[in-house]
Computed example of a mutant assay.
Amino acid sequence: MSQLKGVVSHHEREIAELRADRELAVAYLKAAMESLDDPDERAAGLLALRTVAEAHGGLGAVAAEAGISRESLYRSLSPKGNPTLKTLLAVLKTMGMRLSVEPEHQAHA
């Protein structure tokens, strides 16, 4: 099967957009991090963090700067990954971000 000229995969386009727009990357990751609370949605949050890391120079570069082995980072940011708090904080710091806490929004009766 031949490749179509000028066609870019969704993933490649997503990485390019996140690389070009830091505010978009922060908003994307912030929305995705909310899914980490739900075991059924956790994979999406981890994959979003992985995508932002790819946009930040690639998993190998992020792992090296964060002091984590590349293999460990790939495993941690996989759909079934379970990164430690230390890994999560190191990856976010490498990308110039940090973890924050906000009150949970609750409907008032």
Rank of each mutant, 00 (worst) to 15 (best):
M1K: 14
S2R: 12
Q3S: 04
L4S: 13
V7M: 13
S9T: 10
S9R: 05
S9P: 10
H10W: 00
E12H: 03
E14K: 00
A16Q: 04
A16P: 06
E17G: 06
D21G: 06
R22K: 02
R22H: 07
A25V: 05
Y28M: 05
L29Y: 00
K30R: 12
K30C: 00
A31P: 05
A31W: 08
A32K: 00
M33L: 05
E34A: 08
E34L: 15
S35A: 06
L36T: 09
D38E: 15
P39I: 11
D40K: 02
E41V: 10
G45Y: 03
L46Y: 03
L46S: 15
L47R: 09
L49Y: 02
R50W: 01
A53K: 06
A55H: 11
H56E: 13
H56L: 05
G60N: 09
G60T: 15
A61C: 01
A61W: 04
V62T: 01
A63C: 01
A64T: 12
A64P: 11
A66K: 04
A66P: 12
I68Y: 08
S69D: 12
E71H: 09
L73D: 00
L77P: 07
G81C: 01
G81T: 06
G81L: 06
N82V: 00
P83C: 05
L85S: 09
L85M: 14
T87G: 14
L88A: 10
A90E: 06
V91A: 14
V91W: 07
V91G: 10
L92F: 07
K93A: 14
K93S: 15
T94A: 07
M95V: 09
M95N: 10
R98P: 00
R98M: 03
L99K: 02
L99P: 11
S100W: 10
E102D: 13
P103C: 00
P103L: 04
P103D: 13
E104N: 03
